[in-house]
Nucleic acid binder design. Structure first.
Lengths: 199, 199
DNA sequence: ATCGTTTCAAAACGATGTTACAGATAATGG
DNA sequence: CCATTATCTGTAACATCGTTTTGAAACGAT
C-alpha cells in the first residue's frame, strides 16, 4: 500500500558523499542541512531520518573520513625496509590531512565526548589504527624498533596528528623548507629514539 | 555632553573572564552571545562593540588561554636538571589541556585560517613558544640534547598537543595506567632520540 | 530648564537546526 | 475501473542563534 521509499541507505551514501564535497568546498560553516539537502536533491527531513541530527552527520562524516584514510593507507605497498614503510605511512597520513583539512578537523577535533567515547565512537578509527600497528609490528619483529607495538603506534599517530595540525594551522613555519625540516626531525627523532641502540 | 561609557576595556576583561567560565561550564555550544551578555550583566551589542563578532570573541578567548597557559608555565621553577625541567613543562602543558578542555579546543583547534595566519594570530602564542624554546635551549647548552632549539621546541609542542588531544578525546586508553605509560613513552622516546648518544 | 549629542539595551532581521503537518503516491479491495 | 487507505514525502512552522537597526535614556552645555 505505501509508496516507494526514497530515504534508503543508497541516499544516505549519496548524501555522505555530497557532504564530503560540500565540506571541502565551503568548510564546516557551509555544511548546513538546507544546503546539503538541496545539493543532494532531497529535503532536510530526509537528512534527519538518515542521520538523526547534525551531530549524527558529523559522526558519519568522521567514519567516512577514517574509511578513506584507511583505504589510502592500505593502498601503500610494503617494501623490504619496514622502517621506510613507516616513513611512507607518515607521509600518506600527512598528505591526507593536508588534502582534506575540514574533513580531518571533523575526524580528529571532534567535540570531546562527555567522559568515555563508547566503542561505537572508536570503531571507525580501528582499521586505521590496526594498520599503523601492523606496520610498527613489522619494524619490531625485524629488530629495527623496540617497545610494545600498540603503545608505539599510538604515540606515532599522536605525533603525526600534532604535526599535521600544527602544519595546516600555519604554526610549523611559513615557507616549505622549515616545515619539511621539522617533519623530518619529528619522525626521525621518534624513530631514532625507538631504535635499538647500535651496540 | 555624552553619558558615561560602560563598554570599556574593563568590561571587556570582565566579559572575557565570564566567557572562560561559561565555556568551561557549558562548552562552546553554550557560549552564546545572549548567555554571555546576560551572565556578565550587559547586552549583546556591547559584545559586538568590544569583540567585533563571535569569531573575535574566540580569538580573544584563545589569547586569554595562551596568557593563562604562559603564566602556568612561567610559574615553574628551574632546577639543576634541564631535562627534568622539560618533563615538568610537559606535565604542566598536559595538565592545562586536561583542566581546560574546551578552552584548549578553542586555542588549538581554531578553524584553519585561509592561508597564512597573520602575525596577529600567532602573537598570543609567542610567549608560550619562547618559554618552551628557552627550556629546550638550556638542555642543548648543557649538552643534554642536540639540534636547533626552535625546531626541537616546535616538535616537542606538536607531540605534546597531539598526545594531550588524544588523551582528552579518549583515544589514548580508558584506564589511567596505559595513558601514563604512553605519555612516558612519547616524551621519553623523543628526548631519548634527541639526546647526544653516550659515546 | 531645554537642547543636542552620545550611549545604551530592546527589538527586528535573516539563517540555522529541528519538527509538525498536510499533500502526494501506490498497492489493494470492490 | 475507481475509491480507500496506509505510508512516505517535502513544505512550512517553531525556537534559537548571530548580527544590526532603532528608539529611548542620560548627561554636559546653553
Amino acid at each position: 500500500m505505501p509508496r516507494a521509499k526514497l530515504r534508503t541507505p543508497a541516499l544516505r551514501q549519496h548524501l555522505l558523499s555530497q557532504a564530503v564535497d560540500l565540506l571541502a568546498e565551503e568548510g564546516w560553516a557551509g555544511l548546513t542541512a538546507r544546503a546539503l539537502a538541496g545539493r543532494a536533491g532531497t529535503s532536510p527531513p530526509a537528512l534527519y531520518e538518515l542521520f538523526g541530527d547534525m551531530a549524527g552527520l558529523a559522526r558519519a562524516l568522521s567514519a567516512e573520513g577514517f574509511a578513506r584514510l584507511g583505504a589510502e593507507l592500505a593502498a601503500l605497498r610494503e617494501t623490504a625496509d619496514p622502517v621506510a614503510d613507516v616513513w611512507t605511512l607518515v607521509a600518506a597520513y600527512r598528505r591526507f590531512v593536508r588534502g582534506n583539512r575540514a574533513l580531518a578537523e571533523v575526524m580528529f577535533s571532534r567535540p570531546f565526548p562527555a567522559f568515555s567515547p563508547g566503542p561505537d565512537e572508536l570503531a571507525p578509527a580501528a582499521p586505521v589504527r590496526s594498520l599503523v600497528t601492523q606496520r610498527v609490528r613489522r619494524c619490531i619483529e625485524a629488530g629495527r624498533l623496540r617497545g610494545d607495538e600498540s603503545d608505539v603506534a599510538q604515540v606515532l599517530v599522536a605525533l603525526v596528528e600534532g604535526m599535521a595540525f600544527a602544519e595546516v594551522a600555519g604554526r610549523l613555519g611559513a615557507s616549505t623548507e622549515p616545515v619539511e625540516r621539522r617533519w623530518r626531525l619529528a619522525v626521525g627523532t621518534l624513530l631514532n629514539g625507538l631504535a635499538v641502540p647500535p651496540l
